[in-house]
Each structure stands twice: as structure tokens, then as C-alpha cells.
Simulated assay, not measured.
Amino acid sequence: MAASVSAVVSLPSSKSTIVSTRTSSLISPERLTFTKVPHYKNVSTSGRLLSIRAQITTEAETEAPAKVEKISKKQEEGVVTNKYKPKEPYVGRCLLNTKITGDDAPGETWHMVFSTEGEIPYKEGQSIGVVPDGIDPKNGKPHKLRLYSIASSAIGDFGDSKTVSLCVKRLVYTNDQGVEVKGVCSNFLCDLKPGAEVQITGPVGKEMLMPKDPNATVIMLGTGTGIAPFRSFLWKMFFEKHDDYEFNGLAWLFLGVPTSSSLLYKEEFEKMKELKPDNFRLDFAVSREQTNDKGEKMYIQTRMAQYDRELWELLKKDNTFVYMCGLKGMEKGIDDIMATLAAEDGIEWATYKKQLKKEGQWNVEVY
């Protein structure tokens, strides 16, 4: 840090006197100033009296450092949040509702498209809220909203920026008393018929926004309906043309499901791989049908472990972005893999992950 010196000299007579001055190498001579002032202290030099006042200040004391504004690595420009709220939701209309899992899959998953007439300007990676019809019997009030990740790109499945799509699994389970319980909102959505109205809130969320860099490596880790935001990413990357965005990086998708009949959007993803084989890698983890070399069930972290060193090398680059969406159970397994790899390089994974999150390169949305 450079320092500036302000020195003030007053003489008892009107005649000027030359004072010898020595400056430190840390002080710029151009910053020295001398001005006549009243007496403060008498100093003898060569038999003459001088009155000298001197003050040393640093630039930090005179100039406050400029605040550096953090520049996001994600596509945050123009992001809208909370345009519609529960008390005043947008009323959309169901245009399409299709089951996308096989008949022998353990559960039903549906893909649905709602009209928005362009009134819900969302970005890839955001979510919307849905307020199901009816009254909550527990309190006699309207049901509360449920959040769902958006499964379509910003221009929608029809490419006209007037729709929004969701990927929803019908929730049905038996409770401890042996009674079948149906999820309120998931069953409401899966049962929707074309033409039916639906109350929509949002859009919300910035955690899962896509990277700005079209040359980035984007690693997507999804289980079940956690595939939704990644479908939105991949449609923009491979099925659409944009004047301000042309993807030339690497998109690597890991999708975990229980059975092959549970695979979601498989045909779409395989088409993307055909279009740009050098830019898209696709790995499925089908837990009930696949095993690794040790005979262990093939969960998403098991599949990732087969590429552990390659993934770790990618993760050390500042243009690699990891996105995780789906069941919370996969997070610990993935952390365990990364912790082992980091330790081999003498790096503490917990600390390194915090830095990645701070830079927007490690993004998690699990439930």
C-alpha cells in the first residue's frame, strides 16, 4: 500500500529556507506538499528556528476501497420471481397431460403442459407453485401451494413462450395405520384433463439457473422427477436456436430410476445425443436391474463412481457446474465419493464444496 506524506513548514522570517528532505522508498515524492502555517514546534536546524507540522496518512485512510460487485456465473439477467402469489394466483389451463412411465413401473409419472399466455416469464431452472383445488380438511382452509421444478425451457414445449410444463409423480402410499393416502397436489395434477383450470404462483428460485458460459461443462445428477430442470436445460442446449446462446460445451446427465420402465424422457435424450454426440453424455442408473462389478445396486452415486477421477478433474476447472435435483438420499453418497477423491489431492471436500457453492458451481435442490 503506497503512503502519502503531508508536511507543513513555517519560517520566522519571510525569507525562504531550503530544508533537506529524505523520503522512504514506499513514499512517492510527488505526494509531498509544503505549506506555511502558524508555529507548532520549534526545531533548530543550522542555527535557525523552523516551525514544522508533519502528518503521514495512507491511501486507505483517505480513499475508501471500491466495493467489488460479485458477478454471477449464471443466467440471472431478466429473472422474474414471485410475480404471482397465493392470494392472487395466475389461472392457467391444462393443454396436455400424458403418463410417461410404463405400465409396470413402480408408480406413475405424468408430463403436463399449462397455458400461460406469456404471463409467467420463467427461466430454465426455476419452479412454479400450484394451489390444488379444494379445502384442507385439517383446518377448513384452501390447500397451500406446492412447488414443482419447471420441466420446459423458457420458450416452452411449443416454442411460443406461452406455456409451462411439469413432471409430476403421483404420490400414493399406505400409512402406519394401513390406510391408503393420496398426495393432495400430485393426484390433483395427474388427474387433470385438458381444458381444466389450475392456479399457478411464481416463478421462484435462482439456485438452479443455467450457467452463462455456452462452453461450460454441465454435470446433471437427477433421480426420478428431479429430471425436470435438466430437461429444461437440455431443450435449450440441443433443440433450440438462440441468437445469444449456442451451447458448445459438455452436458453430462446421470439419471437414477428404480426400473427401466421408469426412465423419463429417454427418447428425447437419446435424440439429443444423436444430434451432438460430442457434446452430450448420458448415463442411467437403474437400481433394481443393474449392478456394478461388486454386485452392488446401481444407484446414481454408484454409476458416478465408475467415472470418479474424470469427474474430479472436471470439477477442478472453473467452468464446470454441478446440479443435483431429486431425492435427498443421493447427496450423501455423492459427497462420500467427492471427499475420497479430494483427500487424494490433499483437499478437504467440505471446504472445497463451500467454495464451489459460493462460485455458483455446486447447486443442490433435493427433497
Rank of each mutant, 00 (worst) to 15 (best):
G256D: 03
E180S: 10
S51D: 10
L32Q: 07
E365R: 00
D103I: 11
T98M: 06
D293T: 10
L96Y: 10
T223Y: 01
Y307I: 04
E240W: 00
E268W: 00
S262T: 14
S4F: 10
A54P: 00
I227G: 00
K83R: 15
K317G: 13
M1R: 08
Q290G: 10
D336R: 03
F158Q: 12
S16F: 05
P29V: 14
T33R: 11
R48F: 05
I347Y: 03
K357Q: 14
G159Y: 08
E268C: 01
I135Q: 05
P12Q: 00
G195E: 09
S20R: 14
K41M: 06
T62R: 12
C167V: 15
R93A: 10
E88S: 15
V164H: 11
E274A: 07
S232F: 02
A350Q: 13
V91I: 14
A64F: 14
L26G: 11
T223Q: 02
A285G: 07
F158W: 11
E197G: 06
E331G: 01
T81A: 10
E108K: 14
Q301D: 05
V8N: 11
C325E: 00
Y352F: 11
G118T: 12
F239Q: 11
H242T: 09
Q126C: 03
R309C: 02
K273Q: 15
Y148M: 03
C190L: 09
S46W: 03
D293G: 01
Y299S: 06
K332D: 12
L32M: 09
Q75L: 13
K67M: 11
C185M: 08
W312A: 10
R281E: 09
S127E: 06
P86Y: 04
V43R: 01
A66G: 04
M220Y: 01
I200F: 02
T81V: 15
A60V: 15
A350N: 12
R309P: 08
S51C: 08
G326C: 09
K317V: 03
E348A: 10
